[in-house]
Design a binder for these strands. Structure first.
Lengths: 206, 206
DNA sequence: CGGCAATCTTGTCGTTGTCAAGTTGGAGTT
DNA sequence: AACTCCAACTTGACAACGACAAGATTGCCG
């Protein structure tokens, strides 16, 4: 593990085993961090361990991320960016929800860090803008529900939809739905769920 | 802060300033831990800091909780117990959801730890039984929806309800709903939400 | 009154995050 | 082609932490 030996980008430069400049240390640290977090959560993250994996000295990561919080903030910002691009091209609200759940499954580390505010640098510019972008994408999906004639007001519908998707995704990542949904495809289960709840079909009939 | 000087339970024993035995160190550590977690999250938790707050030596907490994971596991177990008693006396599914949200607001530290599995000792007996108890309480509320005639099967309805409540609670604690719901009472908002979605009133009308 | 087990202390080790100061190398300028 | 400068990385140090081991204290039960 650790350093790759494959042919690399020009930035990787020159010759041999241990170049002084890593080439793309920032990306390497990020990738390693995502692995660790996906496996054992953010609390298992150690800058020194990441440095070891990348084959650099223990203080190298600090140059790219300032500190632990900086690294996690960068991950969250990247996550919101990815989420925004995933949701922006949704065909409707239900599809946006499905994409939300899919994002959480495909990027569990990002997802977890994004929604753990005490790990992040409040007010970081990149984070704030990326989050706003994702927020806009979600709002767009909600607004497209129906231009007029909503049963409940748009803001409430947004909260409802977000809660449903976020709760499903969170419980899924925490393995709390392993029992209830078994080996069924989670995204398909969610689609069914969302369809039933938002189409107005009653869950019970007197 | 730190040690209290008020009259205490008999266990507090004898005379003066610094009794060798604390009296109820276990509870004191737990309470301090909940304060820290509610304020700055589980990653800000330090056993040595808790010991300092309780006025005991740095290794004292270990005797009650074995290690950091043990402390967090105890918190999670306590949380599932509290959740179970809160949900067990719900009048119906909607009320159970409201109680779920209320629990998250009144016990944010418990809630956060309960659903962060990588911080917990998997297979701990107290935790497992408490979790099962809470699970039963929730299942009971779902089963009481309607004995028969559900629009979707019971298991799905349970997942939907849990997702909605859990998502709402999680987003709430992360201050992600501060904008959308403003200063409105969160539990009331959730009640409205749940009523609309589960009563079968459509969110949109052609 | 004696001992025993629970509770808490003291001391230590390896690891971590963070800061400060130094080193390397490549890209651009002249 | 030599020079310079700056970003990228290293080395070294320090305080704080979790964990463990071994010892001290105390209340309790016989």
């Amino acid at each position: 593990m650790g350093r790759t030996l494959l042919p690399m980008s020009p930035a990787q430069q020159s010759s041999a085993r241990r170049p002084y400049h890593h080439g793309d240390l920032r990306r390497a640290i990020l990738t390693a961090a995502l692995d660790v977090i996906a496996a054992d959560g953010p609390s298992a993250l150690s800058l020194r361990d990441l440095a070891r994996r990348a084959g650099v000295s223990h203080a190298a990561p600090a140059h790219h991320f300032k500190d632990r919080t900086g690294l996690l903030t960068a991950i969250a910002a990247e996550g919101f960016g990815l989420l925004a691009t995933a949701v922006i091209e949704a065909s409707d609200l239900r599809d946006a929800g499905v994409r939300y759940v899919r994002f959480a499954r495909e990027h569990p580390a990002h997802f977890q860090v994004m929604f753990t505010p005490e790990l992040l640098r409040t007010g970081d510019l990149e984070l704030t803008t990326a989050r706003a972008l994702a927020g806009d994408a979600l709002s767009g999906a909600v607004a497209a529900l129906r231009p007029e004639g909503l049963g409940i007001d748009t803001r409430l519908a947004g909260v409802a939809a977000w809660s449903l998707a976020h709760g499903f995704a969170t419980l899924l990542l925490g393995h709390n739905l392993d029992g209830p949904i078994g080996d069924k495809d989670p995204e398909e289960v969610f689609r069914t769920l969302a369809t039933t709840l938002f189409r107005g079909e009653p869950t019970s009939r007197p």
